[in-house]
């Protein structure tokens, strides 16, 4: 990858050596009443439904969609923190879906996938100093101790622009941006191939956000890490990501190169999402509004488009036929009966 910051004209379909290849992955959570005879629950939350995607080495994939659409569940699945209900998760050459999450916690490949959680800064143990927090995964996953450990901790801190004199501080003695750096330093310490970031900058001021995003770009260049980056902020996704995946109620509705997807969305939901993003240059005249709320994720109709009922262009067909993800020019995909090629 060149030294350029921001989007590369990378091929939209992950190309070259794949780091991650997940196919038809679903995650269902039982909810509601339990039949006392069968002992089985009757209702299921379809948090992630039939999701397939690929990630190339060094690639940054953005994941966007409304609150509750399944982004966090999906990244917890691909980081193997929870077990999928069905589907395959290939990491490098290895199939990981069959390894129970509790066993994977001790797996040698554990260190290769790291995750920075939503509210990274807040999720650091308040009784850990920054140094302890960064050292923790190195100790647990790689069994490092003593001088080697200290050296690795300092290396990770330096890579993340964290002054070494801050290492002795506790989280409450650090600024939001410094805590975010600790969260990232902790995750890159074991030198993962894949770093999953679940809204790492959501709670930060723009100024701090810029430094964190630029840090991520420089780490991508110096360490060759791949990212899966979850964010509510489409402007940020566009800045950082090569490709973007748009989810709606557990399913992928659109995939493609970030700029293309945001400049000319194929799916009606993506269109509504893009139109709602505030812009420094003011309201556009065409401001399209998505009204209403998503349907319930509990036992959704398997034969209806999840967006049906809220979709401004839906028809009766959408209520009886689930749209499949279809391929479009430019490495794009969309799941809508009425999606058409974007005008050139």
């Amino acid at each position: 990858m060149s030294g350029q910051i921001g989007n590369q004209p990378t091929p939209p379909e992950a190309e070259g050596p794949l780091l991650l290849d997940i196919a038809e992955v679903s995650k269902r959570f039982p909810v509601g009443k339990t039949g006392w005879l069968s002992g089985k629950s009757h209702s299921l939350v379809h948090a992630v439904d039939d999701v397939s995607l690929t990630l190339a080495r060094g690639e940054t994939l953005g994941l966007v969609g409304e609150s509750g659409c399944g982004k966090s569940t999906l990244v917890r699945l691909l980081a193997r923190l929870t077990d999928p209900t069905s589907g395959s998760i290939r990491f490098g050459t290895r199939e990981l879906s069959a390894i129970p999450a509790k066993d994977f916690a001790r797996d040698p490949d554990r260190a290769r996938i790291q995750i920075v959680f939503q509210d990274a800064g807040e999720s650091i143990n308040p009784r850990f100093t920054a140094a302890d927090a960064i050292a923790d995964p190195l100790r647990q996953l790689q069994g490092l101790t003593g001088d080697t450990l200290r050296q690795k901790v300092e290396e990770a801190a330096t890579l993340c622009g964290l002054p070494l004199e801050l290492l002795a501080r506790f989280p409450h003695q650090l600024s939001g941006g410094q805590r975010a750096r600790v969260g990232i330093a902790r995750a890159i310490g074991p030198r993962p191939d894949l770093l999953v970031l679940d809204e790492p900058t959501a709670a930060l001021d723009v100024s701090v956000q810029v430094t964190i995003l630029q840090l991520l770009v420089s780490l991508r260049e110096s360490l060759g890490i791949s990212y899966v980056f979850v964010s509510h902020d489409l402007n940020v996704v566009r800045l950082l990501c090569d490709r973007v995946v748009v989810m709606y109620l557990g399913r992928i509705v659109e995939v493609g190169p970030a700029r293309a997807v945001f400049d000319a969305p194929l799916h009606p939901y993506t269109r509504g999402l893009v139109a709602a993003v505030p812009r420094l240059d003011g309201v556009r005249a065409d401001a399209l509004r998505l009204v209403g709320d998503p349907k319930s994720p509990i036992d959704p109709d398997p034969n209806a488009c999840r967006f049906h009922g809220r979709c401004p262009i839906g028809t009766d067909r959408c209520g009886v036929e689930m749209p499949e993800l279809r391929r479009f020019a430019g490495g794009r995909q969309a799941a809508c009966h009425y999606a058409e090629e974007a005008p050139a």
């Binding site: 910051i5 723009v206 902020d233 402007n235 566009r238 993003v277 812009r279 420094l280």
Partner: peptide, 10 residues
Amino acid sequence: ATPTAAGNLA
């Protein structure tokens, strides 16, 4: 410091 629709991170 504010991201825009058109700009670059750099």
